[in-house]
Amino acid sequence: MELSDSDLDLVSVLADGLPLVDRPYRAVGQAVGLSEDAVIARIKAMSAVGIIRRFGVIVRHHELGFRANAMAVWDIPDPLVGELGRRLGDSPEVTLCYRRPRRLPDWPFNLFCMVHGRDRDAVEAAIRGLAERHGLASHGHAVLFSTRRFKQTGARYGRRPLAAE
């Protein structure tokens, strides 16, 4: 699906958030030069093709008491990483699951999972459970807890600054 200029403007506004007014899609449409119906139709179209992965309330884990987060990484042989990634990605403990490149010798890991929890013990237990259920013990592994959040704001996909998850 080709994104038009008005789609890109709409993407910017939607990443920023819907205004809290009676008819928010009409308000968004006025900002980007689309009708209310067109805004709704474009959101449906972008959702149908997967450009929009999710449309709804976006919560902040840390502020809701999920204060611990770790990036759990594994070095999985390339022929196995797709299947293991899909299994880990379907696990309820996992918030995000990606394959990324190794950068040897500094970084030997190619499978990345984000795990959030109320405290460090909960996150460690969740990662142990994942490793046991999916038979990951023989693979190289590291857990990188976050110790400090320096910034969590503004993704910029379009032409104006946007709020990020």
């Binding site: 939607l14 929009i52 449309f55 976006i58």
Partner: peptide, 29 residues
């Protein structure tokens, strides 16, 4: 929703886009 946003529980009501669907991004270390 306004109160929950002010209190920080909600980031926004909006869209999460597929990475790379629009523009580019990376994780850096």
């Amino acid at each position: 929703l306004a109160r929950l946003s002010r209190g920080g529980a909600i980031s926004r009501v909006g869209a999460v886009f597929r990475p790379h669907a629009v523009g580019g991004s990376t994780l850096a270390a």
